[in-house]
């Protein structure tokens, strides 16, 4: 009985993840996007812990711990400090207007579910039905990177894409080998650092974080 509830809760967490992805896609304020990202990380941790408990896979606890430290604590703090120092809490610009983005997002979700169907059938994991959601999260985050004109939301899109990947790995195969996970966690941290430095550089050069300024770097 307990077991069935737990499996249900995994599906619940998965749908929360998807909802959060949509929320991030539609949100204009950077501060809120960061909050949503933190929330997404927390949901991911919770989902991983549940999967670990249900399947008795101990290494998933470690994965959950790493995710908690990096994506729920360290990176959000870094991002908060970043936007404080850059003084960009408000973001109004998207390249495509929000309703259109949402519609494209729905199409992507349908596509992702369709794509995951045969893979999910093959998988014997208890969370196999959530694979489509994980793929949809990846695609939606990618979409977010494309539609945002400012650098900070793009970074968040990148990080959230990594969340989706992680969830896909958990749901399809009970997570990746530990080495790979460590590597990815480290990569994400380094990526944030580099992008942070990069953003400061952009602002120093152009007095704005609008990445459209980078178009001027193109050689004619």
């Amino acid at each position: 009985m307990m077991h069935a509830y737990l499996i249900q809760s995994i599906n619940l967490f998965a749908s929360v993840l998807l909802l959060l992805s949509f929320a991030m896609l539609s949100q204009r304020r950077i501060l809120t996007v960061i909050h949503l990202f933190t929330l997404q990380g927390a949901t991911l941790v919770a989902a991983t812990v549940v999967v670990a408990y249900v399947t008795n896979q101990h290494h998933l606890y470690y994965s959950a711990a790493i995710t908690l430290v990096t994506k729920v604590i360290v990176i959000p703090i870094l991002l908060h400090r970043l936007i404080d120092r850059l003084n960009v809490k408000w973001d109004v610009e998207t390249l495509i207007n929000i309703p259109t983005t949402m519609l494209i997002g729905i199409l992507l979700v349908v596509f992702a579910f369709n794509l995951a169907l045969p893979i999910a059938k093959l998988s014997s994991s208890i969370a196999h039905s959530t694979l489509g959601i994980a793929l949809a999260c990846v695609l939606l985050s990618f979409m977010m990177m494309i539609t945002r004109a400012k650098a900070v939301p793009q970074v968040i899109g990148f990080l959230s894409m990594e969340n989706g990947l992680f969830f896909a790995a958990t749901s399809a195969t009970y997570g990746m080998p530990m080495v790979v996970e460590f590597g990815i966690a480290f990569d994400v941290l380094v990526g944030v650092f580099i992008l942070g430095v990069f953003m400061f550089q952009i602002r120093e050069q152009f007095d704005s974080l609008d990445i459209r300024h980078l178009e001027k770097l193109k050689e004619d």
Partner: peptide
Amino acid sequence: LQQGRISVYLLYSF
């Protein structure tokens, strides 16, 4: 192909 716009490059990968 080379627009200089990151969004367009991302779109290519997408």
